[in-house]
Design a protein around this nucleic acid. Structure first.
Lengths: 162, 162
DNA sequence: GGGGATAAGTTGCAACTGAAAACTTATAAG
DNA sequence: CTTATAAGTTTTCAGTTGCAACTTATCCCC
């Protein structure tokens, strides 16, 4: 385990993971997100579906709104109702949520969860989320290593023959 | 209480996401995992790198061990030292961790984090984690929908004549 | 082999966060 | 005008987090 691997560690603080967790790291955040992906839009819907305490739900929803993951709109048709919808930023969490859920299916529950996300075109379930190379090849763990940004080959039509 | 079946929503409880969050949903879990992916193996390394309180770290490590995400081994060479290493189950969280980190880069920090995960073969950074169809096509949000398991077309050599 | 350093924890206690249930406020529906 | 609904707040209490100091076992050196 050369120092090659250890060098990057001093830079761990510059990782975006803490920033992501700042927004999504709380207990109910991902469950609320999943519910939003599944078409829930209102306070009472989340509350009864998730069984979350009302004060916590109110707090989490406003937090997600603050972080721009949900947007909050009062409905003109019924001014009691508030609609919470995913923003583009929130929808961008789909791969993360799916990866986590698929991991749970494979390693925790052992069974597929419902509902299933499927391709409109052929009606088949999506693939497991995996890591892909620049050129689209799927990559397994032993085809990968960590590198400092300055050592990363930049995107360009490859002409180096090494 | 629920009465009419409301499409997939009634089945939200059968989702594996809560199970996954049971194992990984706590505040420091993903940061410890990231550190493990980056080559940290010992209590004091995690402690000084992450700045986490010692009692919390001890608690999280044993929790991750209980869940089979890390394994705990005493080193014969120096019997003071305990080595924490990712199990196969733990390594399977790589796509999730990357997806979350990439989301943070794109939507929170706006900058790439270090270290970068690169392909051994060409030295280039990996692609953003995305959703892929059964046949490998990348899928965007509007090419997808949720379905109940019984409505999902099963894997089989496609003879789809459209 | 005694003294100090190192590794991996534990313990005690204050501050903070989470949760259940009841209460509030605004709007709508009959 | 009364009652129901929606989206919160408030109150209260339990549980969690975090710092600092303490413990135990092991290693390293002279």
């Amino acid at each position: 385990m050369g120092d090659k691997l250890r060098e990057p560690l001093r830079d761990l603080a510059e990782c975006s993971l803490p920033a992501a967790l700042e927004a999504m790291g709380e207990r109910w955040s991902f469950l609320i997100l999943r519910a939003a992906f599944n078409g829930l839009h209102h306070f009472e819907e989340y509350q009864s579906e998730l069984g979350i305490a009302r004060n916590i739900l109110a707090n989490r929803l406003s937090r997600l709104v603050e972080h721009g993951i949900l947007k909050r709109d009062a409905l003109p048709a019924d001014r009691r109702k508030i609609e919470y919808r995913l923003t583009e930023k929130g929808e961008a969490l789909l791969p993360t949520m799916l990866a986590l859920r698929q991991w749970g299916e494979r390693w925790e529950t052992g069974m597929p969860s419902t509902p299933v996300l499927v391709d409109n075109r052929d009606g088949r379930a999506i693939r497991p989320i995996t890591v892909h190379a620049w050129d689209g090849r799927p990559l397994s763990k032993n085809e990968l290593h960590w590198a400092l940004p300055e050592d990363v080959v930049q995107d360009a039509p490859a002409d180096a023959s090494t």
